[in-house]
Design a protein around this nucleic acid. Structure first.
Length: 222
DNA sequence: GGCATCGGCCG
DNA sequence: CGGCCGATGCC
């Protein structure tokens, strides 16, 4: 505690560095947000659970924004971010604004289904250390790297297919023979949208009605 | 083989 | 600056 005055002794300077130019009524009020994650209209009731016989009573669908705690030991370099911890509110002059808005980052984009979850990962090593990467997890647990991938999955139901890596393409290869796509796997079911059947509540219609028309909704119809 | 992360590039 | 993708390394 004594270090308090020592480390942050520059109380006066603090204000000078962070004068918060235009701030009508933010101040601490900003920190006490009612519900940054839950917006009005967002209800996470477990009431509908009972309607789903298949849904095991293991756990509810809480908004898990990857606020898990690193248990220990794992050689995981990147560490999951905690929204609560990120709310320092202190003079973060030494911190880039990127982190400060961690809260905003954890909020779901409009194009992302409400049943999906966001995974925030911070790079702890490398030249890009400190970079925040956003991942998207679907109700099933699949992990995606970017919005594009998520959309692809929502549209086709199949994970994006990336090149199998062709190395330098064999320099001495003769022209004429190459990788010919084999027409294998023709049984590719699921070509048509797969809503979040994983946790499809019986009141789905209610939610749909209530929720505004999102872009992804249109895709489903398509 | 698969997963995870980092780097670098682009908009 | 943010975001996405690609590639590599590691397990």
């Amino acid at each position: 505690m004594s270090e308090n005055s020592s480390g942050r002794g520059q109380g006066g300077v603090d204000l000078a560095t962070n004068p918060t130019p235009v701030d009508p009524n933010n101040d601490i009020g900003d920190l006490i947000l009612p519900d940054p994650l839950l917006d009005s209209g967002s209800f996470i009731d477990a009431d509908q659970n009972e309607a789903e016989p298949m849904t095991p009573p293991k756990k509810q669908q809480h908004q898990q924004i990857s606020e898990d705690e690193q248990g220990s030991g794992s050689g995981i370099a990147t560490e999951p971010i905690s929204v609560a911890a990120a709310v320092d509110g202190s003079a973060g002059s030494t911190r880039p604004p990127t982190k400060r808005n961690l809260e905003e980052m954890s909020k779901r984009p409009s194009w992302l289904p409400e049943t999906w979850t966001i995974d925030l990962r911070v790079r702890s090593s490398g030249a890009t250390a400190g970079t925040i990467d956003r991942y998207y997890r679907d109700p099933s647990g699949k992990k995606f790297r970017s919005k594009n991938e998520v959309m692809h999955f929502l549209e086709t139901g199949n994970k994006i297919k990336r090149k199998p890596y062709d190395a330098e393409a064999t320099p001495s290869k003769s022209p004429g023979s190459k990788k010919q796509k084999k027409s294998a796997s023709k049984r590719k079911k699921s070509e048509a949208l797969k809503f979040d059947f994983e946790n499809r509540p019986s009141a789905v219609s209610g939610i749909c009605t209530n929720a505004p028309e999102e872009t992804w909704t249109a895709s489903v119809d398509n």
